[in-house]
């Protein structure tokens, strides 16, 4: 735990407070989420208060504060996806796996998030699972797809 965060912090000079967001991004990339302990360590290193760090981190939708599941599902709710029924897919998925956006299932199999737009609007509605974008989704197709992820 300590080493990963140390390695990330060492790449930045404490004085350059503008690097707070890239540091948070690297931490999330390595650990999957921003834990209270990570915030503590970043706070000590940059001499920024913990509340300020949370202020910045919670402002941006990219950061999550609970451990992710084994597979992360992101439902695109961009305009094109909405018009093509993205909202129906989200509702059906919520009923299927029993969690709301921002949460992780109890068995840690899936975590669920909504994104504003993945930029694949011509193939709407789209769903992203573990960084792979699946196009022209339907409720049925998504259900079949989920079986492939254990």
């Amino acid at each position: 735990m300590k080493d990963t965060i140390d390695a990330i912090l060492k790449k930045h000079i404490p004085k350059e407070k503008g690097n707070l967001i890239p540091v948070l991004q690297s931490v999330q990339k390595k650990k999957g989420y921003i834990s209270p302990e990570s915030v503590n360590r970043i706070s000590n290193y940059f001499r920024i208060s913990r509340s300020s760090i949370y202020g910045v981190a919670t402002f941006y939708s990219q950061f999550r504060f609970n451990p992710p599941g084994r597979h992360s599902i992101k439902i695109c709710l961009g305009t094109a996806c909405h018009v093509q029924g993205g909202d129906f897919i989200l509702k059906a998925l919520q009923a299927e796996i029993g969690i709301s956006p921002g949460e992780t299932t109890d068995d840690m199999r899936f975590d669920l998030d909504r994104v504003a737009c993945l930029g694949c609007c011509a193939l709407a509605p789209v769903v992203m699972i573990n960084n792979k974008i699946h196009s022209r989704m339907s409720v049925i197709k998504l259900k079949e797809l989920l079986n492939k992820y254990e």
């Binding site: 503008g18 941006y60 939708s61």
Partner: peptide
């Protein structure tokens, strides 16, 4: 290259600058 962290308002010039400076956008 500075990666945004998911905030629509950062498309606004002054918010974008605040974000590059490491603050709330």
């Amino acid at each position: 290259i500075k990666e945004g962290a998911g905030a629509f308002v950062c498309g606004e010039e002054t918010a974008l600058i605040a974000s590059i400076e490491g603050q709330r956008g």
